[in-house]
Design a protein around this nucleic acid. Structure first.
Length: 610
DNA sequence: CTAGGGTTAG
């Protein structure tokens, strides 16, 4: 009969048996027992056999033995019993660097990096010296916390203690600097290394990919392949695909997909999820669906990736179908899934459905709506002109600092779009007072005044910006046609070689939009030239959707037109996509700049004109 | 001969 051992009893026994002198048991047979027990502990798959081995260790008088106890600690950590591991650790009479590092690593991998840092503090008092393993663990903790202040202090300590040349320590340092958006410092570490392996290359590639410099990521990947040091593994391929996604490089993405298949990683769920995301961001939701359907049992992340991809592309119905499908398959949606589902409602005009989902979040799925969900709802209401409701919602919810700017920034854009100067004024005030998105607030408020015909206030705001030196970074977008990339900066066409080509494309687009039944509405789009502040031009576009889909460029005449900006937020963006594809007779894609992986969870908002 | 580094959705 199998009997479950009482673990607490075993641990108490372990304490009690330490009263005996371990030297009594030090015989050759004891060494054999020790080897046997350690072997057991390393392969142990369940708590029952772990406790059994633990009790055997106690009976054999090994509870005093640091080496055996370290194995026990690691066994409990592997079985996710950090409490037992810590208890054992507390009872040890002789802790060595492995004991300390094991426990710290346990806390880091179980999502408690702060506890690991606290343990290091205690370790310093204990006179046990940290080694390269300890530092790799600690840097990992800083990386998760994105705490560069503590990270730098560890880095200094690493150099002082002479671990600055260790391969693993360096890889973790690259990762930490990367996660803190300090790309140059990550590169300094990478360049200083005398030996590199796949992991260090991957860390550097990932740093580029996650910091919106996908081109460098791809360049480094090419370099890695050229050097033929090693074959890329699934970690590296993941980062490379993710870089292609952020660049919208469909061609490179497809090539990397080919590498994935050739190297036999196509059954890897993480890779598949990255591919789903990449194809969606490159405007090929059809391919996303194909890759997604090959995943055997998609978890919440692949589902969410697919839901978000479809939502952004304007396929709201598909997105919501997938949402229902995952709920039917009893896969629990999380906060990100709801961002996707609400995005779908917002971009497909399914307002009632969106409100219904918001209400169901906590009640049915136990996910508390937060700022990002309220922002989706405010965006959704704003798009259909229910600006007053959006305003009341924004006023009624409590959100944290970052979410606050997101929410009121969305409200500001929505009120500009619908000419609600009163709300725009309040939203800008809130943003400026909280010292967030200040330049954007000034510009959008100024544009709102201009749209309402209040040129005086519009002009005054511009003057004040100039006087106080507040500057808005111009937005940019780029399109890729075959091998060439065309970059546009907001309010600047000077670097555009295809100026006349672009203009004729625009004119043709307008014609096509008219043919499609877009009546030239009264949607006036107001543009202020930042360089020549007095110049105000109003341009009426045939469709608000067209206006949203286009990024800003300045024509030689000073008229500002939006070209391909925020394509993904346009309700009919796939329609627009098709139209433009028809005209240029090629596939192309558009990406936004400034997409930071770790610290920018900014949502696309309606009328996010910059 | 116990402990350490790199990947996915917003």
């Amino acid at each position: 009969m199998k009997q479950r051992l009482n673990l607490n009893l075993v641990i108490s026994m372990s304490c009690y048996s330490s009263l005996y002198k371990p030297s009594l048991f030090h015989t050759t047979t004891n060494a054999d027992i020790k080897a046997y027990l350690v072997g057991k502990l390393q392969t142990c798959k369940d708590l029952t056999s772990a406790t059994l081995t633990h009790s055997k260790a106690i009976i054999s008088g090994l509870s005093y033995d640091t080496f055996t106890t370290n194995h026990l600690i690691n066994c409990y950590l592997r079985l996710l019993r950090i409490d037992h591991a810590h208890k054992l650790f507390d009872q040890m009479s002789q802790r060595n660097v492995v004991s300390w590092t094991s426990l710290m690593a346990g806390y880091v991998s179980h999502g408690q990096p702060i506890v690991a840092l606290r343990l290091f503090h205690q370790m310093q008092a204990s006179l046990v010296l940290p080694n390269e393993f300890t530092f790799a663990t600690l840097i990992n903790a800083c990386s998760i916390l994105a705490n560069i202040d503590i990270g730098r202090r560890f880095h200094a300590l690493i150099e002082i203690m002479g671990f600055g040349c260790n391969l693993v320590v360096c890889s973790s340092l690259i990762d930490m600097y990367g996660k803190c958006n300090l790309v140059d410092e990550a590169r300094l570490i990478f360049d200083s290394m005398c030996i590199r392996n796949v992991v260090s290359w991957t860390s550097m590639i990932t740093t580029y990919a996650q910091n919106a410099i996908g081109h460098y990521a791809l360049q480094l990947f090419r370099e890695f392949n050229h050097l033929r040091l090693d074959k890329p593994n699934h970690f590296m391929l993941c980062s490379v695909i993710s870089a292609c996604a952020s660049l919208g490089k469909l061609g490179s993405g497809k090539i990397t997909h080919g590498v994935v298949i050739r190297r036999g990683h196509d059954a890897n769920d993480v890779i598949a999820t990255t591919l789903v995301d990449m194809y969606a961001k490159c405007g090929c939701v059809h391919y996303s669906t194909k890759v997604f359907r090959r995943i055997q049992n998609p978890s919440v992340i692949p589902y969410t990736s697919m839901i978000v991809g479809a939502a952004k592309y304007g396929l709201g119905t598909l997105s919501l179908q997938l949402f229902e499908e995952m709920v039917d398959r009893r896969i629990k949606p999380n906060d990100v899934t709801f961002v996707g589902a609400l995005h779908a409602c917002s971009h497909s005009g399914l307002v009632d459905k969106g409100l219904e989902i918001l209400d169901s979040m906590n009640v049915k799925y136990g996910v508390m709506p937060d700022a990002k969900h309220y922002t989706c709802i405010a965006d959704m209401l704003g798009r259909v002109g229910r600006i007053e409701e959006a305003y009341q919602l924004a006023k009624s919810v409590q959100v944290e600092r970052d979410g606050y700017a997101l929410l009121w920034g969305t409200l500001l854009s929505a009120s500009r779009l619908h000419g609600r100067v009163d709300i725009a004024v309040e939203a800008s005030k809130r943003l400026i007072e909280s010292n967030q998105q200040v330049a954007g607030a000034y510009v959008t408020l100024s544009n709102t005044y201009a749209l309402a015909g209040d040129w005086e206030n519009a002009h005054n705001l511009r003057s004040e910006m100039k006087r106080t030196g507040i500057q808005k970074e111009p937005g940019s977008s780029w399109i890729e046609i075959k091998e060439s990339t065309y970059l546009f900066h907001a309010g600047d066409i000077s670097n555009c070689n295809q100026r006349s080509e672009m203009l004729s494309l625009l004119r043709e687009l307008e014609e096509r939009m008219k043919e499609k039944g877009y009546v030239g509405g009264t949607t006036g789009v107001v543009f202020l030239d930042v360089e020549e502040e007095a110049k105000v031009e109003i341009m009426s576009l045939h469709s608000e959707k067209l206006a949203l889909a286009f990024g800003l460029i300045n024509t030689p005449k000073g008229v500002t037109i939006r070209i391909m900006k925020n394509l993904r937020m346009c309700r009919d963006c796939h329609e627009t996509f098709k139209l433009i594809s028809d005209i240029v007779e090629r596939d192309f894609i558009v990406r936004d700049v400034n997409r930071f992986h770790h610290f920018n969870n900014g949502l696309c908002t309606c009328g996010d004109f910059w």
